[in-house]
C-alpha cells in the first residue's frame, strides 16, 4: 500500500500546492505506513526535488497525451498508476485542475472522495478528515469508509515541510489511455500573476474604491507586498473587476496568510469566503463596519488617504 500524490506543475515547475500535497502525503504515510509516491505528468524540470518534501519515489508519465490537460486522460493515467502501486490514500490539490480529476479518480478507484480538505486526517480510529463547508462558514468532520481514499486538499491549508532527501525518479509511457474527446482551442493565462487561490497574501477591495479607475492603488499595494488582488461581489457584479477576483460565498473561498480588505463592509457572504485567512486587516472609513469584528488589525480611515501611505510604507518595508 502507498500514499500517492498528483503532482501539478506550472511552466515545468511544481506548484506550491503540490509541495503542500507531498508534505501532506508524507504526514499521512507516517501514520498509516507505506511509501510516498508522487506522480508527475506533462514534464517537470526537477522531479527528484519532490524528495525534499517527503516523496520516496516520483513517477513521471510521458507521451503526447499529456501535452495539454485533459481531465479524462489525466484521471485515467493517474488512476492506473494508483492501482499498479497499491495506492490507498490519494492526495490531490483542490485547484481547478485538481477538481477536474478528483471525482473521476474516485470513481475509477471505487474510493471515497473528500474535497476541500483543510487539515491532516485523524487516524486514531478510522480515517477522519476535516473539510470546509457552507462556503467557509463552518467545518465538517468526515469519516472516509472505503479502502481507497481520495483527498483533495485546499491550497494553503498545511505547511510545507522539508526533509533534505531526494526521491528516486522513474519514467513511464502509459499505453491504452482513452483519447481525449475535448480539444483545447486556446489558452489564456495571466503570466507573472499569482493565482488567487494559491496566494499567501491577498489585497482585496470593495465599493469603497468608488470606481475601477482607482484600482491602480490596490494593485500598487499588492505589488509592494507580493500579493494577489481580489474584490467583493458588488465590484465584480458591476464589472469593475473580473469575476475571477470575486471572493465570498458565491465566489472563491480563499485562505491566505494575510487578507487585507479595503473599503469592504464585511457582509456575511463576503466573510464566508475569507474567514479562514490567518490574519485579516480591514481598512474602512466606517468604524461600525461589521468586518472589523472579524479582523485582527483595523484602520478606520478613508481608503484614498490610507492607501497611499500604506503603499509607501509597504515599499519601504520591502526594501528594509
Amino acid at each position: 500500500m502507498s500514499v500517492i500524490i498528483f503532482a501539478e506543475t506550472r511552466d515545468q515547475q511544481y506548484k506550491k500546492s503540490t509541495l503542500e500535497a507531498v508534505s501532506y502525503g508524507k504526514e499521512v504515510a507516517q501514520k498509516t505506513g507505506g511509501k510516498v509516491i508522487a506522480v508527475s505528468m506533462g514534464g517537470a524540470s526537477d522531479a527528484a526535488s519532490l524528495g525534499n518534501y517527503g516523496a520516496d519515489e516520483v513517477i513521471t508519465l510521458h507521451g503526447a497525451e499529456f501535452a495539454t490537460f485533459s481531465p479524462e486522460v489525466y484521471a485515467s493515467a493517474f488512476a492506473e498508476v494508483c492501482k499498479t502501486h497499491g495506492g490507498k490514500t490519494i492526495i490531490i490539490s483542490n485547484t481547478y485542475s485538481g477538481k477536474s480529476i478528483s471525482g473521476r479518480v474516485a470513481v475509477l478507484l471505487q474510493g471515497a472522495l473528500a474535497t476541500n480538505v483543510v487539515d491532516y486526517p485523524d487516524t486514531t480510529s478510522g480515517f477522519r478528515v476535516k473539510r470546509g463547508v457552507f462556503s467557509g462558514k463552518a467545518f465538517a468532520y468526515v469519516d472516509m469508509q472505503s479502502d481507497v481514499k481520495v483527498i483533495a486538499i485546499t491550497p494553503n491549508s498545511v505547511e510545507i515541510k522539508t526533509h533534505g532527501t531526494s526521491a528516486s525518479v522513474s519514467a513511464h509511457q502509459p499505453t491504452g489511455l482513452p483519447t481525449s474527446a475535448t480539444k483545447i482551442e486556446s489558452t489564456q493565462t495571466v503570466s507573472g500573476k499569482i493565482p488567487l487561490t494559491e496566494a499567501e497574501i491577498v489585497v482585496s477591495a470593495g465599493r469603497g474604491m468608488k470606481g475601477p479607475e482607482n484600482w491602480n492603488m490596490v494593485e500598487d499595494l499588492a505589488t509592494a507586498l507580493g500579493a494577489a488582488t481580489a474584490c467583493s461581489k458588488p465590484v465584480s457584479d458591476m464589472h469593475w473587476r473580473p469575476h475571477s477576483e470575486h471572493v465570498g460565498q458565491t465566489g472563491i473561498t480563499i485562505k491566505p496568510n494575510l487578507y487585507i480588505a479595503i473599503g469592504i463592509s464585511g457582509a456575511i457572504q463576503h466573510l464566508a469566503g475569507v474567514s479562514s485567512s490567518k490574519v485579516i486587516v480591514v481598512v474602512n472609513k466606517d468604524a461600525e463596519a461589521p468586518f472589523f469584528k472579524a479582523a485582527d488589525y483595523g484602520i478606520v480611515g478613508d481608503a484614498f488617504e490610507v492607501l497611499p501611505k500604506l503603499i509607501q510604507a509597504a515599499k519601504a518595508s520591502a526594501t528594509s
Binding site: 463552518a138 467545518f139 480591514v282 472589523f292 469584528k293 479582523a295 488589525y297 483595523g298
Partner: peptide, 20 residues
C-alpha cells in the same frame, strides 16, 4: 456509502481587533 459526516464545527472566533 463511501463517507459519513460525523460532526460539524464553527470557526474559532477572532480574539478581537487591534486598531491602528
Amino acid at each position: 456509502n463511501h463517507v459519513n459526516y460525523s460532526k460539524f464545527e464553527l470557526p474559532q472566533p477572532k480574539q478581537g481587533v487591534r486598531m491602528i
